[in-house]
Amino acid sequence: MSLDLFLLIAAALFSVGLYGALSQQSVVMIMMGLELMVNGVMLAGGAYWWFVAPASLDGQVLVLVALVVMAVEMAMGFAVTTAIFRARDVDLTDSAADLRG
């Protein structure tokens, strides 16, 4: 096992997530893309901790923070989806482009 391998996997996960976040129209699918990006960050953080500085616990805390970010993102994403769906019956980003410009 080497750091390069894990960083490559993490980069692939991040890129797939980025593609989803940029291309999907459904709000829920965009959130899936964002979660995949954070997933890649978690893997890269864990790998970096193990292969570079296992004595310090900073890497572990970083992964924990990424996990929390994922939970917060999902909760807020669904709250916003619920709010806009209730107000306008909208679940696609193209129908919620009020702030565009």
Binding site: M1, I9, M42, L43, G46, A47, W50, Q60, V63, L64
Partner: peptide
């Protein structure tokens, strides 16, 4: 993968 990397808890 995290378990493989020694982070069983995470």
């Amino acid at each position: 993968e995290l378990v493989l990397l020694g982070s069983a808890y995470l």
